[in-house]
Design a protein around this nucleic acid. Structure first.
Lengths: 249, 249
DNA sequence: CGAGACGTTGAAGGTCTTCAAAAGCGGTGG
DNA sequence: CCACCGCTTTTGAAGACCTTCAACGTCTCG
């Protein structure tokens, strides 16, 4: 298995104009002319599952947008124990303006595909495009909101609630407009062990709670990591105080 | 008990030049001349314990720095349940540039004293002072780091570890330079119930774990909410994987 | 002092973890 | 193709941990 990353110039990358980052990512702040600069300077970075994308304390290798896969931001505590403090989904941006060193380890939880621009040219580029500068600030604020939303997941009291919250989180990230009452698809992309890691649980508990949710009809297994959610509202209810899952008269 | 806030013009406020915000807060980005503007426009806001400082979705009433007390940022879930997503300590800033509505409820956990500036004049002021603009971005990034550090506390597996983490968090915020091997003082400022709320535990568990930590000599009670930490390193060890509390041979 | 909020302690029960075993799935090579 | 291997997932049983319900101290302030 490859554990290193491969960079390749632009090859295989979608044109900026049809990239998802154009709509929701950094590039939403770029004008049409600026896109040309990005188009010329971007390159493709691939990371295999388990690869380290950035290490806490060391320099950010690049600024970039995740195109596919899933990465985790984690802190390594004093001794060995690792704590995940956030997830990076497709469309999310990696790197911060004015901050050259990483504050957290970034690890590829699955195979990860990134559209990357070398950090220094990007910084200089930012100076000249006020729209993108402003966009970067906005994105930092968004990131803050996301970190706090993530807190809301982790701080749930029971394993059931944590898991339901995480499923909802993935569902909302993967389904652009989940209609209420409409079913939707959720790809966890992770092993039970990785999920357990995220939620500070054991993989056995994750497995048990998942089968419970399936038995209750809140989930339908498609593959082992992909589920159908028949009723997202119901799942959201299960992620909160849900003692009345056993309906009270 | 008063539940509303009182604003009073500058009276009782320390001069900007000797304010802690000058060193570590927003104002660290301000020049000497800019301080004059702040000095003229700042006012004093007092909130009693339990008072709402800002409500999610509604407009920020002001931009300001907390001078004393402790406030919580919390999300109100779909139904009733409230989840704390962060703490605001003295020296911390409230409000965001370019974002006029609050994303979270801000509640005074104790009596809170704030040095406030009306939001619109402050926004205009920011435009003219590049140093402070930059400082605001930095502070947002810091806030992000703090939110993620907070995640590290909440995601601890056992009540003992959560509590130890929170104690360390407070210790580091309240003691500017805690020397290793040196004792330090921690003021929790909160009731057992509020602590339990923060950590998603019950107040009984908090009480029990605190007495355990005291019995082990990791804490010495000063008052019910103030403790002496004889060995901060030891407490930090207790906040991680600490099975060897029962020393292994 | 008496009331009310805050804090401690005990016992029973539920949830999660730990240790252990076995089954399912995906590859590789004979 | 199938046997085999490693990794993932499920399931079971025992025990640790946390919560719940309840009673009792303690502190503070009118």
């Amino acid at each position: 298995m490859r554990t290193t990353s491969r960079h390749s110039r632009t090859r295989g990358l979608p044109a900026c104009t049809r990239c998802l980052a154009r709509v929701q990512g950094v590039c939403a702040g770029a004008g049409r002319n600026d896109l040309g600069w990005l188009e010329r300077n971007k390159s493709h970075a691939l990371f295999d599952k388990g690869a380290t994308i950035a290490r806490s304390g060391s320099e950010w290798p690049f600024a970039g947008t995740v195109l596919s896969g899933l990465a985790s931001l984690s802190r390594t505590q004093d001794r060995g124990t690792r704590q995940v403090v956030g997830l990076v989904h497709p469309g999310d941006f990696l790197g911060h303006p004015g901050r050259t060193t990483a504050r957290f380890d970034v690890e590829a939880l699955t195979r990860v595909e990134i559209c990357a621009v070398p950090i220094q040219p990007f910084e200089r580029f930012l100076q000249g495009v006020p729209g993108m500068q402003h966009r970067m600030v906005e994105m930092t604020l968004d990131e803050l909101d996301i970190a706090r939303a993530w807190l809301g997941i982790l701080s749930r009291r029971t394993a059931r609630m944590k898991l339901a919250s995480l499923l909802v989180h993935f569902a909302l990230r993967q389904n652009t407009s989940p209609l209420p009452g409409q079913g939707c698809r959720v790809d966890m992309m992770l092993t039970r062990e990785q999920i357990a890691d995220l939620l500070s649980l054991t993989f056995e508990t994750v497995s048990r709670q998942l089968t419970l949710l399936v038995n209750e009809g809140l989930l339908q297994p498609v593959t082992r990591r992909v589920f159908l959610v028949p009723d997202l509202q119901a799942l959201m209810r299960a992620s909160g105080d849900d003692d009345d899952g056993g309906l009270k008269p």
